[in-house]
Design a protein around this nucleic acid. Structure first.
Lengths: 203, 203
DNA sequence: TTCGAAGTGGAAGTCGAATTCCGCTTCCGC
DNA sequence: GCGGAAGCGGAATTCGACTTCCACTTCGAA
């Protein structure tokens, strides 16, 4: 590795992939990297975070060596997967923010997130069993969520005493619940109801 | 071990403690067993499920050997702790069942459970990181919960489409959320609201 | 087609945690 | 107060991941 050294920096990030810095990856290598990522995704979904690196490698049809060439650490692999999920989530948040009605947008976001969690047991496991992992929510996502929340709050659509970090914790809980039963629609509905500002008394 | 053999049965349970089968434990041994249990409890609360057996032993002021004499396996130790929690929960459920108003009883149970979770980070971790562990909910607890739910359901206090296993999953989610922030009151309130049967339209 | 850099597989090494073992110590019934 | 069964501590072992290493391919630019 004579290229731009990427020795285990404290932060640990795997720097970009396919065309890092200057010299691009060899075609086959890029392909392998992708297969590994997919395999890891599937493996986590099936067996939770305790899958072994070797299983992932086998699943991807490569040797562990190859796996480690792309991701210096199991953590790094997980982080990459988490990053992808986060990016996707940011996109979803943006779509929600594009909706005119704040309350509707918020509900849609929650529902959609629940649905995505149900469809991706792997990440679901990672998120609920979080705390540990390198699964720091990227600031960008937090920020978007904050906006989404604030809009809903202003519109009086959700309880005023709900801040982002609480909401984040709640999403963690949601993923844990969904990891146990896939009743995401029920859970989403409950959540939305529970987060709603207490209804004014009937006239 | 010439006594009633308790070789690793498939199920794995550590059979009773202090006065198992016939010959009772020696006084000091019983005392040590208790200390280990307490230490483990505290340790899990502080550091989550990844505490090492040796740390627990040190904390209890005994050697690992002693620890293993009482609990053949880390799993067994965890299971014992879980069992205690479950027993406590059963008691709480019974108290709730003794309350005249079903809706109130249900709310009280949820609130109380959330509070207990917040006060016992260890079990909280275990429950949220569940799935894995030997933390099978004992049938007795499930049964009590079922009754509690059914009563509330009949009284029209909760949504009719909520069964025990969903509720169990929800409690799992709750513990995960509480493990992240200790806003148990907020979460309990939300949950209770969310589980309530949709209010009839205002007259 | 050739050649060297890039990439590969998987055996071997490492390392941290669980679990075992056993000589020594402490109870406790007589 | 004795004897020996029960219990104890903690060093040593086992075990199961993760990671490293390197001889051997494969790619792709000239």
């Amino acid at each position: 590795m004579t290229t731009t050294a990427q020795p285990s920096q404290p932060g640990g990030k795997t720097l970009n992939p396919v065309l890092a810095g200057a010299r691009p990856m060899r075609g086959d290598a890029a392909r392998n990297r992708a297969r590994v990522l997919d395999a890891a995704h599937a493996a986590f979904a099936e067996d939770g975070a305790e899958v072994q690196m070797e299983q992932i490698a086998r699943r991807a049809g490569v040797g562990v060596g190859t796996l480690y060439r792309n991701f210096p650490t199991k953590q790094a692999l997980i982080a990459e997967l988490a990053q992808r999920w986060a990016d996707e989530r940011i996109e979803i948040a943006d779509q929600a923010l594009a909706m005119p009605d704040p309350a509707e947008a918020f509900g849609w976001f929650v529902r959609r997130t629940a649905q995505d969690m149900a469809g991706d047991a792997g990440l679901c496991h990672l998120f609920s069993g979080l705390g540990g992992a390198a699964c720091e929510m990227p600031d960008l996502l937090i920020e978007r969520t904050e906006v989404l929340l604030e809009r809903a709050r202003r519109a009086g659509a959700i309880r005023p005493d709900l801040n982002v970090s609480d909401f984040q914790a709640i999403l963690g809980g949601l993923s844990a619940a969904i990891a146990q039963t896939d009743k995401w629609e029920l859970f989403a509905e409950m959540l939305i109801t529970g987060l709603r500002a207490p209804a004014p008394p009937c006239p």
